[in-house]
């Protein structure tokens, strides 16, 4: 298992469009990808749960990946969040 902390930078936060983009990226990997935020564990492949988590600009979170392609999964999801989720 690998993990890293990161921070939401885009102004809209994890809303519909950024969340769509994030789920699309996360779903490309076989690994389980979990976001840890304020004591909750959120499945990164679930758009409903991502939106319900209300991740805003400035929210600090941890991404945890476990599975055959975990390293690559972590690298890409963190890079996506840090690049501003397409915003």
């Amino acid at each position: 298992m690998v993990s890293a902390t990161t921070k939401i930078v885009n102004p809209m936060g994890m809303h519909m469009r950024p969340a769509q983009l994030f789920v699309n990226t996360a779903s490309k990997f076989q690994s389980d990808i979990t976001i840890l935020y304020q004591g909750n564990r959120i499945n990164a492949k679930s758009i409903m749960h991502l939106m319900a988590a209300c991740l805003k600009q400035g929210s600090e979170l941890e991404i945890e990946c476990q599975g055959p392609d975990e390293a690559e999964a972590l690298a890409q999801t963190v890079a996506l969040i840090e690049s501003g989720l397409g915003e």
């Binding site: 789920v23 492949k45 679930s46 409903m48 749960h49």
Partner: peptide
Amino acid sequence: TGQLMMLEDPYL
């Protein structure tokens, strides 16, 4: 497209 995405949600 958002509605389609919601339906693909494995949790849902």
